[in-house]
């Protein structure tokens, strides 16, 4: 065993500091440009969505496919509905296209998702609605989403999410 020399230690610390600063500047200043979604808030607290959207939709996926639970807030169709941008001719742009919502961060962190090889990456326009009139009603879904029933959430999340949704559920029940 060699004793670690103080110089070496200092070098390490400096390196660490440099890395941290570099990382902060990368993430803080040259981060991805994320197009804004429709409406003024997401289906859950924005911070919460950023961190947990993958787990949420994958969980939702199994719920829907295996247990037939639909019309839920974390449906992928909903994400696309709100997060797909429109071009100059008001045509929807694929959410996974370069620079678009689902690609913005993923390109930045080099994450790859294959979801939109199968899932529609643009919302269904009004004109191509289904025979049964479609049942995807975002408001109804949001009303069904009652996180305030949950076990204790961290306060910041709880306050934003639950107050928003209480309002909404009363709207929808009219």
């Amino acid at each position: 065993m060699h004793p670690i020399s103080p110089i070496r230690l200092l070098q390490c610390l400096l390196l660490l500091l440099g890395l941290t600063l570099g990382w902060m500047s990368v993430a803080g200043e040259r981060g991805p440009v994320i197009p804004k979604g429709k409406g003024d808030r997401c289906v859950a607290d924005t911070d919460f969505m950023r961190r947990n959207h993958m787990d949420l939709i994958v969980h939702q996926r199994d719920e829907t496919v295996i247990r037939g639970i639909r019309d839920e807030p974390f449906s992928l169709v909903e994400c696309v509905d709100c997060h797909a941008q429109r071009d100059a001719n008001n045509e929807p742009i694929r959410v996974d296209a370069e620079g678009q919502f689902c690609a913005s961060c993923h390109t930045f962190v080099a994450a790859k998702i294959d979801c939109f090889g199968c899932h529609a990456a643009v919302p269904d326009g009004e004109d191509q609605e289904r025979a049964d009139g479609g049942h995807w009603l975002p408001n109804k879904q949001l009303a069904a989403f009652r996180p305030h029933k949950a076990a204790p959430l961290k306060s910041s999340v709880r306050s934003t999410v639950s107050s928003d949704h209480d309002e909404l559920s009363s709207d929808a029940s009219e």
């Binding site: 981060g31 911070d47 787990d55 996180p147 949950a150 076990a151 999340v157 709880r158």
Partner: peptide
């Protein structure tokens, strides 16, 4: 990276949130 985007607290809430939305309806 996500943390750097400005989130510090919410992760621990996920399991609770999932189980509540799901169990309440199951």
């Amino acid at each position: 990276f996500l943390q750097r985007l400005g989130v510090f607290s919410a992760a621990t809430a996920l399991p609770a949130l999932l189980s509540s939305t799901v169990d309440a309806q199951s």
